[in-house]
């Protein structure tokens, strides 16, 4: 058997099509790469075309084994596990072979890495529900995060329902994508660059108030930096209000200096975030929180 590498478009459906093709073409894979992180290799490579009908067939066959598998694999696909595609592919093959008992084998060498990766993802989502900081910029709430996993799809319903009467966006610097929400619709879209506008008077004041609250609430006699670090790893501090330098708390007299790249034309209105785009055809509009 020769070593074979599949190349796919990075989408969840695309990955399911890798499974589909490997079965119909009777090929066993040694690696699956998405276009982005593909490095030329010595192995034979085939590009998998994403076909929604194929993806749906695979998905249905998996859900028939257990309804939990679908959502589980979707989550796997959002994790930062290295070579997650290959792990997922092997897991699926094994699942076809062994059926539901595999899902109880919590120590299985194929299943366990995925379980751990998803736990890591879910933990990060939980932390970020609290650690996300929004700023109000011209009536829109905007925030930035630097997560390891792709958390936006899982943070979506939480923030969109909490702030249902607001307009908001949340930019993921790591994965260069942003969640937009306005008027009951939300959308996650790729966004190459983004720079947050500076604060106006009111925003700067709230930042100051929060920092003061944060500094005051600690009990000096109990100081324990190590404990704080365990609960709130340093890598999150970068985007949290309470850990910013003095400049962050000063109102920007002319927000015009701050461009917000990423919006068409390059120079949108003063300090405004990029405008939410209308949902692309075929993409699911945001479900009202009552249903989710």
């Amino acid at each position: 058997m020769t070593d074979l590498v599949y190349l796919y478009d990075g989408s969840f459906d695309g990955l399911l099509c890798c499974v589909f093709d490997s079965y119909t073409k009777k090929e066993v894979l040694t690696a699956i790469y998405s276009d982005e992180d593909f490095a030329p290799s010595l192995f034979a490579t085939r590009t998998v075309v994403t076909d929604t009908a194929h993806a749906r067939r695979v998905y249905r066959s998996l859900v028939r084994i257990s309804p939990t598998v679908g959502p589980f694999l979707r989550r796997c696909h959002l994790t930062c596990l290295e070579e997650k595609e290959l792990y997922m592919y092997r897991f699926v093959r094994k699942l076809y072979r062994l059926g539901p008992p595999l899902l109880r084998s919590l120590t299985d060498e194929t299943y366990l890495p995925l379980l751990r990766a998803v736990r890591h993802l879910e933990h990060e989502v939980e932390l970020l529900r609290g650690f996300v900081r929004f700023s109000e910029l011209s009536g829109v709430l905007g925030g930035e995060i630097e997560p390891k996993n792709r958390v936006l799809p899982l943070l979506r319903s939480h923030f969109c329902s909490r702030y249902q009467n607001e307009r908001l966006f949340l930019y993921d610097r790591t994965h260069r994508e942003a969640l937009f929400y306005a008027d009951g619709r939300s959308e996650i879209l790729p966004l190459e660059h983004f720079q947050m506008a500076g604060p106006d008077e009111t925003e700067a004041r709230y930042r100051t108030l929060w920092k003061r609250f944060y500094d005051t609430i600690a009990i000096r006699e109990r100081e324990n930096p190590r404990l704080r670090m365990t609960h709130m790893p340093k890598r999150y501090w970068n985007t949290m209000t309470e850990f910013q330098g003095p400049a962050y708390f000063r109102a920007q007299s002319s927000p015009a200096d701050v461009r917000s790249p990423g919006a068409p034309g390059g120079t949108p209105g003063l300090g405004t975030p990029p405008a939410p785009l209308p949902p692309a055809p075929g993409s699911a509009p945001y479900k009202s929180a009552g249903e989710s």
Partner: peptide, 21 residues
Amino acid sequence: HIGNTTSSVAGCCHSFSADGR
């Protein structure tokens, strides 16, 4: 309305002060 308490069910920490609380 603004807000929900769905994330509050598990108790959601928004920060940790210097004493680790």
